[in-house]
């Protein structure tokens, strides 16, 4: 297979982790909640899925059922995290940043405990082939384009459609922009906030699961997951709060990440050992640049939701 094509597909596959994370975060932010718990939620999603696979990995269930059960378990774990977050920030009106950071610390720690107790031969070796359908068994990067990869693309496009083309999306955006107005026209603000946060967390959790079981498919994968959670949050700004745009942004980020390992294979390019760490810096440098550039844009549509980070209480005036 052509090196460049291989490179591109790998970027896409890697990017799917970010697609999940950013799409989940966008839904939450559109409801006016800045969820910094996303890294922890992604970790919990991964841990939840793997925990289920550890139970049923060698049970001889049909592959389809194993795939579905793993996804469901990842969803349940991450949505529970989302529920904790929404209870604290929506109902109790706790500070969103603090709650999110606490949730990340908690999620990352708990995931490490869970993952260290699981047996890789059970949860990983067998099931990863099912998740990598239809390209399982191939030796190039095409193998990573599995069920969860396509689900990511579908979710990102569907989320965009729901947000900008349906009434539910209109209401959700109104809640994030101006909850008092939404409340005045009879929209149940808290219900939308809960819904968006939990669904968003579920989606983000799938990202963690995808990263461990499909893209990396290794026993140590979970150790590097948290960093990608943070990048997903940064990507939200890059994507201008539009879920379909995350596909492009994620691919760019994936590309930058794969850069350092792929560049050595390209004929005619020599990379010294000293250059490698510099190349590895690339995605982070670009993240900083993206944050700077996106902060100086001033079109109203490209700004964060107006009431992002603010709790809403009807009797506050």
């Amino acid at each position: 297979m052509n090196i460049w094509l291989n490179f591109l597909i790998d970027s896409l596959a890697f990017g799917a982790t970010f697609i999940y994370g950013s799409t989940g975060e966008i839904l939450t932010e559109k409801a006016g909640h800045l969820n910094l718990g996303i890294p922890g939620i992604m970790c919990m999603g991964g841990a939840g899925g793997c925990l289920m696979l550890n139970l049923i990995g060698k049970s001889g269930l049909p592959p389809v059922l194993i795939v579905v059960l793993g996804i469901l378990s990842a969803l349940v774990f991450s949505m529970l995290m989302g529920l904790i977050y929404s209870f604290l920030t929506v109902t109790l009106r706790a500070n969103q940043n603090v709650t999110g950071l606490a949730l990340t610390t908690f999620g990352v720690g708990l995931m490490k405990v869970i993952m260290s107790k699981l047996t890789a031969t059970v949860y990983l070796v067998g099931p990863k082939q099912y998740y990598r359908w239809p390209f399982a068994g191939r030796q190039d990067s095409l193998q990573c384009l599995g069920v969860l990869f396509f689900l990511a693309i579908i979710i990102a496009i569907a989320a965009g459609w729901v947000l900008f083309r349906t009434k539910v999306g209109l209401h959700l955006r109104a809640v994030g922009e101006n909850p008092a107005t939404a409340d005045a026209v009879g929209i149940n603000v808290n219900r939308y906030k809960y819904l968006a946060t939990c669904v968003g967390s579920g989606i983000a959790g799938l990202g963690g699961f995808y990263y461990i079981i499909d893209y990396m498919a290794s026993q140590e994968a979970y150790l590097s997951l948290e960093a990608f959670g943070w990048l997903s949050i940064a990507l939200v700004i890059f994507a201008l709060w539009r879920p379909p745009v995350t596909i492009i942004g994620s691919t760019v980020f994936g590309f930058l990440f794969s850069c350092s390992s792929f560049i050595t294979i390209i004929p005619g390019v020599t990379v010294t050992m000293a250059m490698k760490p510099v190349l590895k810096m690339l995605p982070y440098v670009v993240t900083v640049l993206v944050l700077i550039i996106s902060s100086i844009r001033n079109k109203r549509e490209n700004q964060p939701p107006s009431s992002l980070g603010l709790s809403y209480f009807r009797e506050d005036r």
Partner: peptide
């Protein structure tokens, strides 16, 4: 009580 970012029509139909 209007959402600044929405169009007139979007604001009008909001919550109906």
């Amino acid at each position: 009580k209007l959402v600044d970012l929405f169009t007139a029509a979007e604001n009008i139909v909001l919550g109906v």
